[in-house]
């Protein structure tokens, strides 16, 4: 089922959570709402679910206006950030809840409920936990049970609020892949909220980058990472070096992008910075302050002549060929850069 969001606005007191947001979620896709805390992503998700009412604008489910449809009748599955499992019920009863509260004429009988619940518990690979209570589960297990519970009512849309936020790094990575696989299996239209760019880029079919109640860019993970539409998107998706044309003279002219005049800023990712031992045209002199090997990459912290810091990243192999040492003087130039006008609102 597709979801259309038409100029949805929401105000909390004097704080604008959403500023006339428009978005279309295609049937069957896995969409990420990505942004810093307070950008309005969770509010948007809760408005889609019906847990929050927008001040203005419309929500269309499959082309039909659902703005005033009660949460109960929206047929959405919602996975809460802290799971909100029913603490006094076993895992089995948690998953069965959505079926048990149905009105009599649509409620499946007990054997059918049992079959469905075990099917779902098998889907999330936790059938052996059916008789446990939520408090007896680990974070990752609770997360998967919450998902099974949400899927039990056969929702048309699955909404997940920071689904991996409360888990440690290793479990998070596992669950990320697992969710991706699950989505390929179930193929229900899904929207999840995250502040973690890696998570959004890895899991989602499309990423919506949000900031201060507005959408900055919508696109596939490659699109938003490789061709960020705004400086905010550039900065939010990974580390970035800023070169102000006024300060660094001709530096912003490097690369294929023309300079937008004085006051332009070039954005260069650390792994797009090239290091040279000899001076060459269109390079900047820099001093290496620190060299840090972090897993598969080597991160170099440099400072320009005016003291501005620059970060560069090399692969282990590239570093092994050059062996830069801290204190060394080098010359840097960007392989690619994106130039935005200075006064662009960030």
């Amino acid at each position: 089922m597709s979801i259309e969001i038409q100029s949805i606005a929401k105000q909390f007191g004097s704080f604008t959570a959403l500023d006339k947001v428009n978005l279309k979620v295609e049937t069957g896709e896995l969409l990420a709402l990505l942004g810093p805390s307070g950008c309005g992503k969770t509010t948007l998700l809760r408005i889609i679910a019906g847990l929050e009412t927008p001040d203005s604008g419309q929500i269309l489910f499959h082309g039909e206006d659902a703005t005033d449809t009660h949460v109960r009748e929206r047929q959405v599955g919602f996975v809460f950030q802290h799971y909100a499992l029913f603490r006094h019920m076993t895992v089995f009863e948690n998953v069965a809840f959505g079926l048990r509260v149905r009105p009599k004429h649509t409620r499946p009988n007990n054997t059918e409920i049992k079959r469905r619940v075990h099917e779902l518990l098998n889907l999330v690979q936790l059938d052996w936990l059916a008789d446990r209570y939520p408090a007896q589960l680990s974070g990752g297990q609770r997360q998967r049970i919450a998902l099974a519970r949400a899927l039990a009512v056969e929702p048309k849309v699955l909404l997940l609020d920071e689904p991996f936020g409360a888990l440690d790094t290793k479990v998070r990575k596992e669950l990320r892949r697992w969710l991706k696989r699950l989505h390929e299996e179930v193929h229900v239209t899904s929207v999840f909220v995250t502040h973690d760019q890696e998570e959004a880029l890895e899991v989602a079919d499309r990423v919506v980058v949000m900031n201060k109640g507005r959408i900055e860019q919508v696109g596939t993970p490659e699109q938003v990472y490789d061709t960020p539409a705004t400086p905010f998107v550039y900065q939010f998706l990974g580390d970035v070096n800023l070169f102000h044309s006024r300060v660094h003279g001709g530096f912003a002219q490097v690369g294929e992008h023309p300079v937008a005049g004085d006051g332009a800023v070039a954005y260069v990712r650390p792994h797009d910075i090239e290091l040279l031992r000899e001076p060459a045209p269109q390079t900047l002199a820099a001093k290496i302050d620190h060299v840090r090997a972090i897993g598969s990459i080597v991160r170099l912290e440099l400072s320009l002549e005016n003291g501005d810091p620059v970060e560069a990243e090399l692969s282990r192999d590239a570093y092994a060929g050059q062996r830069y040492a801290s204190g060394e003087r080098v010359y840097i130039r960007p392989r690619s850069a994106r130039v935005f006008a200075e006064d662009y609102a960030i």
Partner: peptide
């Protein structure tokens, strides 16, 4: 809220 979303 979870109960409500589930249709209760």
């Amino acid at each position: 809220q979870a109960a409500m979303v589930l249709g209760a």
